[in-house]
Amino acid sequence: MTTTADNGVNVQALLEARDVLKGAPEAAQFTWRATSTWEAGVHSTTRIQNFFGLGQEQAHKTEAVFDADHPEVFAAADNGITPIEYLLVGLAGCLTAGIASVAQNRGIQLRSVRATVEGDHDIRGILGADPDVRNGFNDIRVTFTVDADASKEDIEALVAQSQKRSAVFDALTNPTNVAVEVA
C-alpha cells in the first residue's frame, strides 16, 4: 500500500476512531436531527445544525437550510427540490464519501469521481390512483465514472466497498422502523 495518495480524507483519524469505539459502543451512538417548518402550499424549509454523538451535543459549523417543494408539473411553486430527490442527494453524497475514504485507505489517488443517480418513481402511488403501486422508488440506479490511478477491478472494488459501508445505501435498501407522532 502506498501512502502518497492524497484524497483529502483523514483515514488515520477514522481508523483510530474505529479502534476506540470498538471498546466504547455507547460513544458510537449518534442522533442526527432536522427541524422543518411549513412555508406555504407544499413548500417547507428544513434546518439542520445540531446533532448528538460521542456522548455529547455537537454542532455543524453553520446551520444548513433546505427548501423542499414540488415542480410545476405537480401544480406547485417549485421553491426547491422534491423531498424524494433529497434521497438521491443523500445516496450520492454517502457513496462518494465512501469511495474517497476507501481509496485513501487503499492508497489510490482519485482525480475525479462523478455519479449520476436515477430513481424510478410511479407517482400513481402517492396520488392514490392505484393501491398496488408503492409510494416510494421502485428502482434506483447509480452510475459512477471514476478517474483514478487504479485498474478497472480496483475501481469496481472501491465502489462495492463504499456500498458495503454506506449509511444511506443501507437506509434505502433495508427497512427501518419509523415512528411519526403528534407532539
Binding site: 477491478e153 465502489v159 462495492a160 456500498q163 458495503k164 433495508n174
Partner: peptide, 17 residues
C-alpha cells in the same frame, strides 16, 4: 434487502482477486 447486486459484486471481485 435491495442490496443484492452489491453482495454479488463483492463476492465476484474477491473471488477474482
Amino acid at each position: 434487502s435491495g442490496g443484492l447486486r452489491n453482495v454479488f459484486a463483492l463476492a465476484d471481485l474477491k473471488m477474482t482477486r
